[in-house]
Design a protein around this nucleic acid. Structure first.
Lengths: 209, 209
DNA sequence: GCATTATTTGAGGATGGACTCAAATTCGTC
DNA sequence: GACGAATTTGAGTCCATCCTCAAATAATGC
């Protein structure tokens, strides 16, 4: 009844000992690093094993194929997103739009190292759209909820539209920070300013009556 | 002295007849379509030839290898960008920040079908950074120039930072429009609004003294 | 029409990377 | 320390995809 027995290939087992669990961690970490760097297709199974200090056979003991590695990574990353966005609303109460704007920006900056390879995986695996949608849905719902706590008069649908925009802004900032190519030196700061200008201009009319 | 003789492999020639030039166009168009859909790595040379209605041998007559196809596409796309951004300043004079914001947004929407595979290629070929930088540099310079025409008091460096932010906003919108997943229905419109709020708030202090 | 040159064709070579497996090793437990 | 079970190992198989090339065909110029 483990995640493998239901539909996985016969050749691949859950780790049952501490060493195995540790190895799975190392393998996934290596895979995430490499896929974030080079992309899904360009990352080879041999490289993943090598970076994890393992041999190719160990990798295939725990993952039936390359796709399973990707799936495991996506699943973990989405769990992280769900956690973070679910807890967002708690922190959003009693904040000014400017402060909320900064918190949202910082959230994704903080999140980035924990979901390094997610964007590479999303692009590569264009099948499995339902998973992508689930991730986006949780993010947008979480942000929209925070927005409506900050600006109670905000319409539900509009809150989701604004959330979608803010989410993309956050992704852009993540992209700027991730690579050492911040386009221009002041761009990240400028992006934060844009986000504040936008949220302030958009939320103020709806604040507390 | 053609682009091939200088450093290319011996096996690959410039087209010398109308039929050959036509074939090259079809091959590049097919390659651009496929790489935009599936990504660089996932696109095979056989697929490119097939979609162009050609055989694999014809593809290799004009391109020594897959990398050369990518290079040719990038080169063409960058030429398009350079043209468009160079002509941007002409249209920017005498515009309000709001109008400029909309023109910038529309520019990238218009541009998108002409540089379909550029983002896929940029991600796949992380070597050749200088080319990526050249593309970005032209875009930022063009936008910054337009901004300073609209708001003459604007500092050079700040104009470039703002341009970098606007460029990324444009890319986000392109992403929203490209796939049939506009995140939420109102998101594209909301993104336009954000861009106007941002540019208005940022440029007004610098307008005509 | 004939010679020359450009283009097309597609079978096949070479390579790299996904994946297998049986034997060796380590770990946990009694 | 002995037994079974989990894990490690890495050489080897398979196959998809990149790329070659020599022969066939089409176009051009004279």
């Amino acid at each position: 009844m483990d995640s493998n027995s239901s539909r996985g290939k016969r050749t691949s087992l859950q780790p049952l000992r501490a060493a195995g669990r540790q190895r799975v961690e190392e393998l996934l970490e290596a895979a995430s690093d490499l896929m974030a760097e080079r992309g899904y297709e360009a990352t080879t199974m041999a490289e993943i094993a090598a970076r994890a200090g393992a041999k190719i056979g160990s990798l295939y003991r725990f993952f039936p194929n390359k796709e399973a590695v990707a799936d495991a990574l996506v699943q973990r990353h989405i769990a992280v997103l769900e956690d973070e966005y679910a807890s967002l609303a708690k922190r959003a109460a009693t904040l000014s739009p400017d402060a909320l704007a900064d918190i949202l920006i910082e959230l994704l900056v903080t999140l980035h190292p924990r979901v390094k390879s997610l964007s590479a995986l999303m692009e590569a695996r264009t099948d499995k759209i339902e998973i992508r949608e689930r991730a986006r849905g949780h993010a947008i719902a979480g942000i929209a909820a925070a927005l409506r706590i900050c600006a109670p008069g905000l319409d539900e649908a509009l809150a989701r539209d604004i959330a979608a925009v803010v989410l993309n802004t956050m992704k852009v900032l993540r992209g700027m920070i991730a690579k050492d190519a911040p386009t221009t030196p002041g761009a990240p700061g400028e992006l934060r300013r844009m986000n504040r200008l936008y949220l302030a201009g958009r939320l103020v009319p709806f604040r507390n009556i």
